[in-house]
């Protein structure tokens, strides 16, 4: 029917970025399973997948009660040794019976939730990306819990260079005529509706995680620039407040770095509208201009003293 997921993204709670080997340990959520690491164009570490069993109501726009039983898949990622993500997704399918089957049935289908009774894909999609009623399947709570595990790792010193809220991206993917819709809701919540040609593959999850990562980077840079109060505070002070962005964020922008070829048109369409990279570039220029202006002011002051 459809696939839905939620990605939570936040700053890794460590003073500096962590090494590849530290990533492997921080993400070793399951003994015996390896952490996958890719090094180009940016170090990206992905934890083994963990299953969570669920038997609960699914969110619907019509508020009709639909019961789903099965398992959801969660994985965590660390990008550039600096940004941590918890990502949970589930494929929702119709059950062939109207009653709950033994758990062995669901365990043989990891990452699938079967719907007992009647349900419309559109109703579920609207419900999940809309305002889910309390008590329904909450993939964000699952992602958040695993992200907490990563952030509580004894390898991290918890002295992050700046405070930043996590963002959450709830997404729904269906098969059909290609389209993508990215919506900002509150300060921390975003939704994504994606229709892709061909059947679902985990590459779609990669795309959603990549979008969530870049949305968090952009959101965080906006917050840091706002906190700097450029123009309202003395130049040196503003630059000092911008420093964490230069030290920890600016080099992490790699849109679509890990997105499969057939899905890149989706990223490209978001680059046209609303234009993620355009906004990022303009912010980065603003930060660098501030640093340059401040350097110039310091040099001028120095020359004046001689």
């Amino acid at each position: 029917m459809l696939v839905m997921g939620e990605v939570q993204t936040g700053l890794l709670q460590n003073s500096g970025e962590i090494s590849e080997s530290a990533c492997r340990q921080v993400l070793g959520l399951m003994a015996g399973e390896t952490v996958r690491v890719s090094r180009r164009p940016i170090v990206h570490a992905l934890s083994p997948e963990r299953l969570t069993g669920v038997d609960c109501a699914l969110p619907t726009a019509s508020r009709s009660r639909i019961r789903g039983v099965g398992t959801v898949v969660t994985r965590c990622a660390v990008t550039g040794g600096r940004v941590a993500q918890g990502s949970t997704y589930v494929r929702v399918v119709r059950s062939e019976t109207d009653r709950r089957l033994p758990w062995s049935h669901y365990l043989a289908r990891p990452g699938v939730v079967e719907v007992l009774g009647k349900a419309k894909a559109a109703d579920l999609a609207e419900g999940f990306t809309g305002d889910p009623a309390p008590g329904c399947l909450d993939l964000g709570a699952v992602s958040g819990r695993f992200l907490d595990l990563v952030q509580a790792s004894p390898l991290l010193d918890r002295r992050a260079p700046f405070k930043m809220a996590r963002t959450s991206l709830r997404w729904v993917a269906e098969t059909g005529e290609p389209s993508i819709r990215f919506t900002l809701h509150t300060e921390r919540e975003r939704t994504l509706r994606l229709t892709h040609p061909g059947p679902f593959t985990p590459a779609v999850v990669d795309l959603c995680e990549d979008l969530a990562l870049h949305d968090w980077l952009l959101t965080s840079l906006l917050v840091i620039v706002e906190r700097a109060r450029i123009g309202a505070t003395p130049g040196a002070q503003a630059v000092a407040r911008l420093a964490p962005a230069v030290d920890h964020l600016l080099h992490l922008w790699m849109p679509a770095a890990r997105v499969e070829e057939w899905l890149t048109p989706f990223w490209e369409s978001l680059e046209r509208r609303p234009g993620f990279t355009r906004q990022w570039r303009s912010l980065v220029d603003r930060v660098r201009d501030q640093v340059a202006m401040n350097t110039l002011a310091l040099l001028t002051a120095e020359a004046g003293r001689r």
């Binding site: 936040g10 700053l11 709670q13 958040g144 819990r145 907490d148 952030q151 509580a152 918890r158 992050a160 405070k163 930043m164 809220a165 996590r166």
Partner: peptide
């Protein structure tokens, strides 16, 4: 503890 950990990520 989980609540404190999360809030500490985002608040001074």
């Amino acid at each position: 503890a989980q609540l404190f950990g999360r809030l500490e990520e985002e608040f001074d």
